[in-house]
C-alpha cells in the first residue's frame, strides 16, 4: 500500500495547476488584507477548499491515464487501493494545516490580535473541509465516475461560502464562540463517521466488476 500512497500524494503534488494556484493566492491575499481579524480564518477555509478540489482533480487524472486497468493487475487488494487514496488525502491535511497557521500568524501580526479561538477554528476548518469534500466525492467516483464527483464539488462550494458569510458576521461569530467546543466536537465526530462510511462505500464501489 505504501507505493500507492506515494503515487496518490505525488499525483496530488505534481498535478497542481500553477495558474489556479496564482488565482487562489490572489484571493487569499485579498482576504488577509480586507477581512480584518478573520482574514486568517477565511484564507484557511479557502485553502482547505482548494485542497479538496485538488484532490478530486488528481483522482480525475487516474481516469486520463487509464490507471485503474493497470492497478487492477497489481498485487494489491481492493481495500488497499481505496484506503491509499483516503490516507493520501489525510496527508494533504498537513499542507492545509500549515497554511492555516501561517495565515493566522500574519493576520494576528497585522491586526495585533492573537485570538487563539480563531486559530483553533481555522485549524479545525483546515482539517475537516478536505476530509468532508473527498469523503463525499470519492464514493461517487467509485460508483458513478469522476464527472458525478466534479458536479457534487460545485454544489459543495455553496454551503462553504455560506459558512464564510456566517463568520464574516461578527455577531454570528460571537454567538458561536460561546459554545465553540461543542460545535467542534459535533462536527469532528460527524466528519470521522462520514469519512469511515465513505471508505466502506468506496471499497464496495471499487470491488464491483462487470
Amino acid at each position: 500500500m505504501r507505493g500507492l500512497i506515494y503515487k496518490e500524494f505525488s499525483v496530488f503534488y505534481k498535478s497542481i495547476d500553477k495558474k489556479r494556484m496564482i488565482f487562489i493566492a490572489g484571493i487569499i491575499a485579498l482576504l488577509l488584507y480586507k477581512v480584518g481579524i478573520y482574514g486568517g480564518l477565511l484564507a484557511s477555509v479557502m485553502l482547505a477548499m482548494s485542497i479538496g478540489i485538488q484532490n478530486i482533480m488528481s483522482f480525475a487524472s487516474d481516469d486520463n491515464a487509464h490507471w485503474k486497468k493497470y492497478q487492477m493487475a497489481l498485487p494489491v487488494s481492493d481495500f488497499s487501493v481505496v484506503a491509499s487514496k483516503y490516507i493520501a488525502v489525510v496527508l494533504t491535511l498537513g499542507i492545509s494545516l500549515s497554511g492555516s497557521i501561517i495565515f493566522n500568524f500574519f493576520t494576528s501580526i497585522i491586526f495585533n490580535n492573537f485570538d487563539f479561538t480563531i486559530w483553533g477554528i481555522s485549524a479545525f476548518a483546515a482539517v475537516i473541509i478536505p476530509l468532508i469534500w473527498t469523503g463525499l466525492c470519492l464514493p461517487l467516483i467509485y460508483w458513478f465516475g469522476i464527472q458525478s464527483a466534479q458536479t457534487l464539488g460545485l454544489f459543495l462550494v455553496i454551503p462553504i461560502f455560506y459558512i464564510i458569510k456566517y463568520f464574516e458576521d461578527e455577531a454570528g461569530f460571537s454567538v458561536m464562540a460561546g459554545s465553540i467546543s461543542s460545535y467542534i466536537l459535533f462536527a469532528g465526530t460527524v466528519t470521522i463517521i462520514v469519512y469511515v462510511i465513505s471508505l466502506i462505500i468506496s471499497v464496495m464501489g471499487y470491488a464491483q466488476k462487470i
Binding site: S10, S15, S61, D62, A65, W67
Partner: peptide
C-alpha cells in the same frame, strides 16, 4: 497493455 497506463506527470 496496449497503452502506457502511467500518469504523464
Amino acid at each position: 497493455f496496449d497503452e502506457c497506463n502511467f500518469h504523464d506527470v
